[in-house]
C-alpha cells in the first residue's frame, strides 16, 4: 500500500513511458501527448491504484490504452486512403508469376551468427517508419503489443482480411528494408 506521488512521475517514468510510446507511435509529438494523457488519467483515478504491482506497471497499463486510442483516432482520420492503395512491396519482390525476384531479400543471418537483438531492434524501428502508417500500426499492435487479431480489427475498425493484408505487407516491407539496411551496416562494419 502506498501513496501516489504524481509530482515525481515525470522524472521517474517520463523517459521510460516516452520511449515505450515512441516505439509504438514513431512520432515524438504523439508519444509526448499520450504520455501526458497517461499522467493526467493517472492523477484523475489515482484512487484506483492500491499499491499492488508497481506504479510503473500501472502507468504502462494506462499508457497502452492511450496508445491504442491514439492509433485508433489516427487510423480513423487517415481512412481516406483505402488499404489497397497503400504501398504493396510485392511488386518489387515478386515477378509476374508470383516468384521471388533474384536477391529480393538481401540478407539473412548465417547459421550460428550472433545477432545483437537491440541493434536489430533499432533497425526495425527505423524501417517501421518507412512503412505506410496503416501497415506499421497493425504490425505494432500485433507484434509489439501482442494484441489479438479480433481486438486489432475492432480498435482500428477494419476487417480481418484487411488486417492480414496489412500485416503481410508490413512483414514483406520490413524484411526488405531490414535486409538491405543490416546488409549495408554489415558491409560498413567490415570496411571499418
Amino acid at each position: 500500500m502506498s501513496e501516489l506521488n504524481p509530482e515525481v512521475w515525470v522524472d521517474e517514468y517520463g523517459d521510460y513511458l516516452f520511449r515505450y510510446a515512441y516505439s509504438r507511435l514513431r512520432d515524438s509529438n504523439a508519444a509526448e501527448e499520450v504520455v501526458q494523457e497517461t499522467f493526467l488519467a493517472g492523477v484523475r483515478y489515482s484512487e484506483q491504484f492500491a499499491g499492488r504491482g508497481s506504479e510503473q506497471g500501472w502507468l504502462i497499463g494506462i499508457l497502452k490504452r492511450k496508445i491504442i486510442d491514439y492509433v485508433r483516432l489516427r487510423n480513423k482520420h487517415n481512412k481516406a486512403a483505402p488499404y489497397e492503395d497503400e504501398h504493396d512491396p510485392s511488386a518489387q519482390l515478386f515477378d509476374e508469376m508470383g516468384n521471388w525476384k533474384p536477391g529480393a531479400i538481401n540478407w539473412s543471418p548465417e547459421p550460428g551468427q550472433k545477432i545483437e537483438m537491440a541493434e536489430l531492434k533499432d533497425v526495425v524501428q527505423d524501417c517501421l517508419k518507412t512503412l505506410p502508417q496503416g501497415q506499421a500500426d497493425v504490425f505494432v499492435l500485433s507484434v509489439m503489443e501482442e494484441m489479438d487479431s479480433d481486438d486489432i480489427c475492432r480498435e482500428l475498425g477494419i476487417s480481418p482480411s484487411n488486417m492480414w493484408v496489412r500485416m503481410h505487407r508490413a512483414r514483406l516491407g520490413l524484411a526488405k528494408c531490414v535486409g538491405s539496411k543490416w546488409h549495408v551496416d554489415d558491409e560498413v562494419k567490415q570496411n571499418v
Binding site: 523517459d15 521510460y16 520511449r19 516505439s23 509526448e32 540478407w107 543471418p109 545477432i115 537491440a118 524501428q125
Partner: peptide, 26 residues
C-alpha cells in the same frame, strides 16, 4: 529474417536495457 524481426521487437524485450535508457528520452 521475419522471425528475427519479430523476436527483436516482440513484447519490447529491450525496453529496459540500461544502456538504451540514455537514448531517445524526453
Amino acid at each position: 529474417l521475419s522471425k528475427l524481426i519479430q523476436q527483436s521487437v516482440q513484447g519490447d524485450v529491450a525496453m529496459n536495457s540500461p544502456e538504451r535508457e540514455t537514448k531517445k528520452g524526453l
